[in-house]
Structure formats: structure tokens, C-alpha cells
């Protein structure tokens, strides 16, 4: 599998997949998609990169250990829920902020979106942790 072609393509493929995953994540609220599926795509991207370039390379690229992303994701999702404490409503209430961009369109910021991004990070972090650990274990043997 570790052919030259694969190794050459892999970084581009990874980048493409990550971009695509973000796209899937962001359209999730209105079209099929969402944090989970996006996270899976991103994790696959990282796994592919790991296979082609080696796990240590990926780890360097990620800066943080992937499991840290998972923790960050849970934290983010929880914070999205906790925001409703400031407006006297129950936990996990969807809060929306529509910012008029002036040209008729508006930018929608919301806690459900924050929450979904949290999901994305958790899936990304946990799955790539597993994949990298398994790949690395192979190297170690």
C-alpha cells in the first residue's frame, strides 16, 4: 500500500478530506451531514496520512495528542449547553444569534452549531487516537 503514488497523493487527499469534512459538518443542520459524519471523514483523513507518512509525522503535524481533541470536543459541547445558564433557561437550550451582514444575508451563530463542532472534535480525536495507536503498534512490533 505504501507506494510512491500513495505517499505523494496522501497529503493532498488528507487536506481535501479535512476540508470536505468541515463542509459536511457545517451543512449538517440543514442537509444530510453533521458533526459525527464530518468527524469520521476527518479521522479517516488523519488515518490515511498516518499510513502514508508515518505516525510520528502525523503527531508532529497535529501538535497535540489526538485524545486531547476529544477532551476539547466534549468540553466544547458541554460549554455550548452551559451557555443557557446565562439566560435563565435549562441546560442545552439552543441559543441563536443572527448577525445581519448588511447585504441581506445573515450569519447564524448558535449553540447547536457549537455543540456539533464539539461532536466533530470528539469523533476526530477519539477515532484518530485509535487508528494511530493501532498503526503505531504495528510499527513497534
Amino acid at each position: 500500500m505504501n507506494t510512491i503514488i500513495f505517499r505523494t497523493i496522501a497529503p493532498y487527499l488528507t487536506a481535501l478530506m479535512v476540508v470536505f469534512s468541515i463542509f459536511v459538518l457545517l451543512r449538517g443542520h440543514n442537509e444530510p451531514g453533521g458533526g459525527f459524519i464530518g468527524g469520521l471523514i476527518a479521522a479517516s483523513a488523519i488515518a490515511i496520512y498516518g499510513i502514508s507518512a508515518g505516525v510520528s509525522e502525523v503527531r508532529r503535524a497535529l501538535v497535540f495528542h489526538p485524545i486531547t481533541f476529544a477532551g476539547f470536543g466534549v468540553l466544547m459541547a458541554a460549554i455550548a449547553g452551559l451557555m443557557s445558564a446565562f439566560v435563565d433557561v435549562p441546560f442545552l437550550m439552543g441559543l441563536w444569534l443572527f448577525i445581519d451582514l448588511g447585504d441581506g444575508s445573515e450569519l447564524a451563530l448558535s449553540t447547536p452549531m457549537l455543540f456539533d463542532i464539539g461532536v466533530y472534535f470528539v469523533v476526530l480525536g477519539a477515532i484518530s487516537t485509535i487508528a494511530l495507536a493501532l498503526e503505531e503498534d504495528e510499527d513497534g512490533k
Partner: peptide, 14 residues
Amino acid sequence: VLPMVGAAILLMLR
């Protein structure tokens, strides 16, 4: 919520 958030933070500080 408290232990869940705690676990997430501890994981980031592992």
C-alpha cells in the same frame, strides 16, 4: 455536567 467537564479537562491536561 461537573464530572463530565472535569474528565474532559483532565484529559486535555493528561
